[in-house]
């Protein structure tokens, strides 16, 4: 099935046009829904139907974000959270992948460590909050540790199950060629688990945000999680809503980056 450049039939051109039309319609509806929600929100608060002190409103959020921008703290808070999240995401991904490889390599190690991993997975990481503060202080370091902890176990379990699920017949084929364990790893286990790696990244992006924001709730002096907690404490719901909105945009952006990466990496894994 080679892709050929050729002239298409009228019918096919019509089909393509219809498909493009439908895609455009979906996007118009998506953006329309967003505009509608924000419009209603703005309307009911400006008419005084609901108290904008409690619910905030789009215009008040815009003003709050503008205010943050003017006093120069907007990008400081965004940068702090973004750094914690990205660094935590990178460390938990790399460390998780490495540990999963080690566990795949040694069945004995896997058997010995299994109950520990199960317990660590079940443990709500926030319970370790006080310990982390005592051990790592009240700065960004503590939040980074929390972020890594939240993502790490999930990354390990996700990759390990993918490594173990490597096609038995392909393993047999490589063994019949006399492949060493390193060769089996590099020629088969790692490339065939690429789709699992991508799905692990997708899960771990979410985990990193949970970790960093949760960390900022417990202990922080800056960041979007800090703004949300602070805003809640002093009843500035505008600040809470604004920071939440920025979080939504950043989290979505990071997720789409992973999807983009997937498109670049996963081309020929379908059987």
């Amino acid at each position: 099935m080679k892709h050929q450049s050729q002239t298409y039939s009228e019918e096919h051109l019509l089909f393509l046009k219809k498909r493009r039309g439908r895609l455009a319609l979906i996007w118009i509806l998506r953006l329309g829904l967003l505009a509608l929600l924000f419009g209603i929100w703005e309307l009911v608060t400006s008419l005084g139907l609901v108290d904008s002190f409690i619910t905030s409103s789009p215009s008040r959020m815009l003003a709050t974000i503008g205010g943050l921008y003017e006093d120069g703290t907007l990008f400081y808070h965004i940068g702090t959270t973004l750094w914690e999240t990205l660094a935590g995401f990178a460390i938990s991904t790399v460390l998780g992948y490495g540990i999963a490889l080690a566990l795949w390599w040694s069945e004995t190690l896997r058997s010995v460590l299994e109950p520990y991993i199960v317990v660590l997975n079940a443990l709500p990481k926030i319970a370790l909050g006080p310990l982390i503060i005592v051990w790592f202080g009240t700065g960004s370091k503590a939040i980074l540790v929390m972020t890594v902890l939240v993502g790490l176990i999930v990354a390990i379990l996700h990759m390990l199950s993918a490594f173990i699920a490597t096609d038995k017949n392909k393993l047999l084929l490589l063994r019949s060629m006399g492949a060493s364990k390193v060769q089996i790893l590099t020629k088969l286990v790692v490339p065939s688990s690429l789709p699992a790696f991508i799905s692990m990244l997708k899960v771990n992006v979410g985990m990193a945000w949970i970790g960093s924001i949760m960390g900022e709730y417990i202990v922080s002096k800056a960041g979007l999680g800090y703004l949300i907690v602070y805003g809640g404490q002093v009843f500035k719901l505008d600040l809470v809503m604004s920071a939440t909105l920025i979080l939504c945009i950043l989290a979505a952006g990071m997720y789409f980056l992973v999807v983009l990466l997937e498109k670049l990496l996963v081309k020929n894994t379908e059987q």
């Binding site: 060769q183 020629k187 020929n268």
Partner: peptide
């Protein structure tokens, strides 16, 4: 060794699949 299914590696081209035992 030839198995029931071809067990070609889907992420490799045919050329690279043919090279696989040479690499191993």
């Amino acid at each position: 060794y030839m198995l029931q299914k071809d067990e070609l590696f889907p992420w490799r081209t045919i050329r690279k699949n043919v090279y696989l035992p040479l690499e191993i």
